[in-house]
Write a protein that binds this DNA or RNA. Structure first.
Lengths: 205, 205
DNA sequence: TCGCTAAGGTACGAAACGTACCCTAAGTTC
DNA sequence: GAACTTAGGGTACGTTTCGTACCTTAGCGA
């Protein structure tokens, strides 16, 4: 929570413009998302928190959903460096746990709300999807590729739908269970009961 | 679309009560869901369409989300008879295609909206989940059980998380792709690239 | 026949989206 | 350095929709 964004020390009108103001708005929106979720993401409140008004927001984003997606993108960006623990199981567990820790606490509820908020606008849906979903497709293929190089997995496993199954199952937990953080037992179950049997089973089956 | 629910032939006030009125409201709400989706599910419009007013609705459901979930349940109930084609692949394909035909056209968008609309109310989320998600868990276990009996799958495959993987992947398509109906190639890909390798791979891997 | 319950009609307050209008500060150009 | 253009600030407004309140009226049972 970065608190209010009005420049505190300057009494006179020191007016932010352009990218600076845009950053302040996005930060305020992201904070609101974290605190109150997407239903609590009110244009008036974001404007107030950013120390500006709705005009400045609507000049940049056409509606609340677009602002929500943009703010959400700020929350979940960053971590795309795939782990390298030396084993496929270790890498997959690390990936899922990282998602569960860094993203999950707000993501479950917020993502669920946003998926609805974007409604019929496919552009926003695509952006959400690229942020959350198969934005990580490359990551998973990297991890799997190393496993293939080590002989842990057959080359046939390098298939996007196969590679991302673990992420899909984890996201399904977020969406359908309504939990903010998934228990680690569920993660290990996904890995040991589904993902690794799927990957390795393809080697012999 | 069942149209307006006001009794057409009777000019005088012929007032419906109890279960009859409740049915009319639910049907009106379901029709609104089909026509306009959850965002278009307005209490005033449902009341008007059902030929009643908001009082009668709020006396039965505490808020819009509850009415939405109840109406949605009407839309997706019915089909729970598992298919029996003689092969696991045939059964799984039949299940997914049935879901894709009977449910999908409205389900994708509506489900996405509802998942958000229920927001923080876990009871409604659980009801949604039981209607859409693991309401089918028993179905999938039945299908898998027959496959085990035929020797098509190992008994270890009779695990809820494993059994429902195909459904989870299909639902993931609905939620993240924003399509009302999934192409059949995606369904066969889910079955042939993920589900069957997962089930059969466990036999040998 | 007489109440009691529930439905109908309507109006209202609150919240929030999105728009409009005018004023003013920050850059920009000459 | 002055005029001009652009963009931010403040505010008010119209609209929609949720959820509530209040009163009237019809159906049903005792």
């Amino acid at each position: 929570m970065s608190g209010e964004q009005t420049v505190p020390g300057s009494p006179g009108p020191s007016r932010r413009r352009g990218a600076v103001l845009e950053e302040a708005i996005l930060r305020a929106a992201a904070d609101e998302l974290l605190e109150s979720g997407y239903p609590g993401l009110t244009m008036d409140r974001v404007a107030k928190r950013a120390g500006t008004n709705k005009n400045a927001i609507y000049r940049r984003w056409p509606n609340r959903a677009a602002l929500g997606v943009a703010a959400y993108s700020r929350l979940v960006k960053a971590q795309t460096q795939p782990p390298d623990t030396g084993t496929l199981r270790g890498d997959v567990l690390a990936l899922l746990r990282r998602i569960n820790c860094d993203q999950a606490s707000p993501t479950g509820e917020i993502l669920r709300s946003l998926l609805a908020g974007v409604g019929d606008e496919p552009e926003l849906l695509a952006e959400l999807q690229s942020q959350v979903g198969d934005g990580g497709s490359a990551t998973w293929l990297t991890v799997l590729g190393r496993a293939v190089a080590r002989g842990e997995a057959p080359p046939k496993a390098l298939h996007p739908r196969v590679a991302t199954v673990a992420l899909t199952l984890l996201r399904n937990e977020y969406v359908t269970q309504g939990l903010s953080r998934i228990p680690d037992t569920v993660i290990t179950e996904i890995v040991d009961e589904v993902y690794l049997p799927l990957i390795r089973g393809r080697a012999t089956g």
